[in-house]
Nucleic acid binder design. Sequence first.
DNA 1: TTCCAGGCGTATC
DNA 2: GATACGCATGGA
Length: 268
Amino acid sequence: MAIDYKIDGNDILLHQSDFALDDTLDCGQAFRWEKTADNAYHGAFLNKQLTISCENGTDLFRLHGVSESEFLGVWKDYFDLDTDYGEIKRRFSEDETLAKACGYAGGIRILRQDSWESLSSFIISQNNNIPRIKGIIGRLCEHYGGYPSAEMMRDETIDSLGYLRSGFRAKYLVDAVSKVLGGEIDLDAVRTLPLDEARNTLMTIKGVGPKVADCALLFGFYRVDAFPKDVWVKRVMSQWYPNGLPSCTKGLEGIAQQYLFHYIRSLK
DNA sequence: TTCCAGGCGTATC
DNA sequence: GATACGCATGGA
């Protein structure tokens, strides 16, 4: 499926179905996209910043100040534009609840985020709420002028991270930095391990249990068969799927999870 | 004031 | 292996 875009001055103008900025950038998978006063979003992937806006609620998106090579080399993959979410939603819509969930937030796409940022962000997320997660990550990025690599955080201690006000999670961040830099965890190797081994590897980090590991795998390693069960998804399962997920989600459980997570939160 | 938030470590059985 | 409890912080 070819990507439909054109160059418009200094911008890229993208024609893209099954994509909405609110659904994708404010659905709890990424924590440092900010909605600006004019309904655009400003955020970053690694050290690349981006402002993206939607042209009047259409399926036209403007990537401001982005060259064609940067679009094709960075943002096309980040926004997962090679995946046909229309096809995935048709498949999911065999199931009545998933049909409603896909209808509620049909513009969700799974972002292909950085593995370290995703892992450390979801360590911060545990027993925490989304506004406060964003606050902690915002203070971290303000301190470093962008999201820090594990290498940049080499000398951090529980005390030096005090300004984050991340509570008991600071010691978990320190342990994650230590294991990644010490070679006990090779994030590139995790990418290609079988799902169970990948989970078990990440879970050797203090503060990384099944849920944080699955979120990191889904959002930071694009392991779309990982199915993170947080408090909301546990409600989804007991309310709608007491006997397990329907078979139409097989292999794409993580994508189904994101539609369902967003949907059940909207009902509260 | 109490409860809760995209959970997990630890103790205990 | 299951279950109970504490944990930093801050908003509701």
